[in-house]
Nucleic acid binder design. Structure first.
Lengths: 190, 190
DNA sequence: GTCTATAATACGATAGAC
DNA sequence: GTCTATCGTATTATAGAC
């Protein structure tokens, strides 16, 4: 039975407030109040407000990565695997709208220290990169420069989740679901 | 002969600092100091720090739109027109790296009021939308839902500019230049 | 671990002279 | 329009009891 600690409550509350009001628009006092803890408690668990932000960022990225790994399927058919990966990734975003919104908002901002951004971003991009390289070696994907293709794929994922989070009912519509994958797949396939 | 007013200096300084340190990480005192004006002068030209931010956001978006309009070419060949548009758009970003970085950072953040974001975003998306619709009617572009295609195209533009701004020398390489367009064009073309 | 103060300070914005 | 000086406030973080 999972016990919800005060530390977890602080993290969840901070997530919601940072997404809604921004990092600097959210005081530590408000986070503490909304999480029903004292400010002293907040600073007991996190050395500083920045530290809280960083832990949040890292934990969300890990959550996403774990989810992808747990749902991995390898059929041998590259396109089918890509489609499964694409749907799994967007599905996670739909089930974790706050986390996805948080990432959209802060992965490019100056609030997160550059070294942390770089580290988490690299793990995502490497994952995409491995997939693309495999496809290129099979002769199924375009031979554009890898780094450019990685950025493009990631950008398309971000764009699709932006759209579906703004229009959640469309994610239930097979036409839209397939269209989002097709836009992605056509761009990289030969 | 263009006279550089103090107001302009404040805007330019604020742009550089907001990109480098973020909005809340940049005090009005620092903007004033770096622009060689007094804080009183800053608040004479801008009602508040927020107002300064908003004017900056709007003026940058207008600058981009004007540039696109001034470089418009219609050859009758849709793909060729698309390529010209694509190159012109990225070229602007390469010539205005601070403005492009500013837009990447703040168009999704909570710092800019939602109504301003919506207004400027709509003008961009409508522009893309008109183009896609024309192509669909000609039977040259995929018939995916328009809103999804708009978001996808915009996302690919943002991804490409992120890549080329991080690797400016690659924009001079015809292979990379063409690859970025091809990734975009293949995703939407039939 | 958790709480209630409160210290220390940085910041946006104004007043008023020139 | 521009400046200097300053006010009021909001905010992070700490101290110390429980």
């Amino acid at each position: 039975m999972p016990k919800i600690t005060k530390k977890q409550r602080i993290l969840e509350t901070a997530l919601a407030l940072f997404v809604k009001q921004g990092f600097y628009g959210t005081s530590t006092a408000l986070i503490a109040k909304q999480a029903d803890v004292a400010t002293g408690t907040l600073f007991h668990h996190f050395q500083s407000k920045d530290e809280l932000m960083n832990q949040l960022f890292i934990s969300i990225k890990q959550d996403f990565a774990t989810n992808i790994l747990n749902n991995k399927q390898e059929s041998g058919d590259l396109k089918q695997d890509a489609q499964h990966l694409w749907n799994t990734s967007i599905q996670w975003a739909m089930e974790n709208p706050l986390k996805q919104a948080f990432f959209q908002q802060y992965s490019l901002s100056t609030v997160i220290p550059a070294n942390i951004k770089k580290h988490t971003m690299n793990s995502t991009l490497q994952f995409i990169g491995d997939f693309i390289q495999a496809g290129q070696e099979m002769g199924l994907l375009s031979n554009h420069p890898l780094a450019l293709m990685q950025e493009s794929c990631h950008g398309q994922y971000l764009a699709s989740t932006r759209y579906f989070l703004d229009n959640p009912e469309k994610w239930q519509d097979p036409t839209y679901k397939l269209a989002s994958f097709t836009l992605f797949w056509q761009s990289i396939s030969l």
